[in-house]
């Protein structure tokens, strides 16, 4: 008994094809794409943008979570924050447009198509919401970090001021000495002049220090402001989302109760069918009747599938749970589509 394994060859062919596809050498026959509606195309675009924004957000998270005092890149972070903020805003707008589009074409489409597009929209929104949530988290982390850094810097900068500017300290002492000298030794005007000089230089240095600190604080204030405004914007997005969730509430409740009912029924049916299956498998006549087995198997499989999804539903107790589930399911559909 000899045989030959061609799997390796098959896999290498697959790999070659894949690389070729990445290089864009092969243009897939795109006729199924043409049939897709405008809706799916928009949805697809939004999905892609979402993914892009997610990657950016990831980058930002990495940057923001860095705790080092010296390797801080405020400019980059700020830029990224800005970009992401804009992205989220535009995505939000796009989704709103998509929703409008769906509303607009309500009459033309069938019921199933309608529900499908609704789920797609909702799933996209939920993704966006997730992302803005993440974004918010990242910003919070960043603020926290900044605070931390500030306190640390304050700690260090005080001691720094002591150690790093001995001249100022020295000069102050000196000036005190000079003063003493002046008071006690009855020094000349030249001494006074010197003292004055010293005083002015001290003042200048202090001024410089204050200036530095000023710009830094201004910087900080700006950052804070931008973060604040971002959070406000996010807040508005969230309120929008809340609104949408509220819209769905009733349906979700219905789904919830329906699912519970179904689960009960299915459990009963499952038991019955298991009984039947056992009796069938022990029956020899089965051998002659493959269609029967086939049907049973199919049925069992369906039951199992429903069963599984039921468990998923019942697993999440909160009201928004099933909704989320619905969204992810819709998302799967979308994935299949694209």
């Amino acid at each position: 008994m000899s045989c030959r394994d061609r799997t390796g060859e098959f896999l290498s062919a697959c790999k070659v094809l894949q690389t070729r596809q990445i290089n864009g050498a092969i243009q897939r026959p795109s006729h199924p794409l043409k049939q897709r509606s405008e809706f799916t195309q928009i949805a697809k675009r939004i999905g892609r943008d979402l993914a892009n924004t997610f990657t950016k957000l990831e980058k930002l998270t990495i940057l923001a979570k860095r705790k080092s005092l010296f390797d801080d890149k405020p400019v980059e972070i700020q830029e990224l924050t800005y970009i992401i903020k804009q992205d989220i805003a535009s995505l939000n707008k796009q989704i709103a447009q998509l929703q409008q589009f769906v509303q607009h074409h309500k009459q033309q489409n069938g019921k199933h198509l309608q529900t499908h597009s609704n789920t797609v929209v909702v799933s996209l929104q939920s993704k966006l919401a997730n992302m803005s949530n993440d974004f918010k988290g990242v910003l919070e982390v960043r603020t926290e970090n900044l605070k931390h850094q500030k306190s640390r810097r304050e700690q260090f900068s005080q001691s720094n001021a002591m150690s790093m500017h001995p001249s100022t300290v020295g000069s102050r002492e000196k000036s005190v000495l000079f003063e003493d000298e002046a008071t006690y030794g009855g020094a000349s005007g030249g001494g006074d002049f010197v003292m004055n000089m010293d005083g002015s230089s001290k003042h200048q240095q202090q001024q410089q220090l204050i200036d530095q600190q000023d710009t830094y604080i201004e910087d900080r204030a700006n950052t804070m402001q931008s973060i604040e405004s971002t959070i406000v914007e996010l807040g508005s997005i969230f309120s929008q989302l809340a609104h949408m969730v509220k819209d769905q509430e009733e349906m979700v409740q219905r789904i919830d109760t329906n699912v519970e009912d179904t689960e009960m029924n299915i459990e009963a049916a499952h038991g019955e069918i298991l009984k039947y299956f056992q009796s069938v498998t022990s029956n020899r006549c089965l051998i002659d009747q493959p269609p029967k087995i086939r049907n049973t198997l199919r049925f069992l499989y369906k039951i199992q599938k429903i069963d599984a999804s039921c468990y998923r539903f019942s697993y999440i107790p909160s009201r928004s749970g099933p909704k989320r589930e619905r969204q992810t399911m819709g998302n799967n559909e979308e994935d299949c589509d694209t």
Binding site: C3, R6, T7, F10, L11, C14
Partner: peptide, 25 residues
């Protein structure tokens, strides 16, 4: 089976469901 046919199959395997391709005589 010819190399060509293996390629045709590989091209069709978009969903990466093929685990093995063998010749059993």
């Amino acid at each position: 089976i010819s190399k060509q046919d293996v390629k045709v199959l590989a091209e069709a395997d978009d969903q990466e469901v093929v685990r093995e391709v063998q010749e059993f005589f």
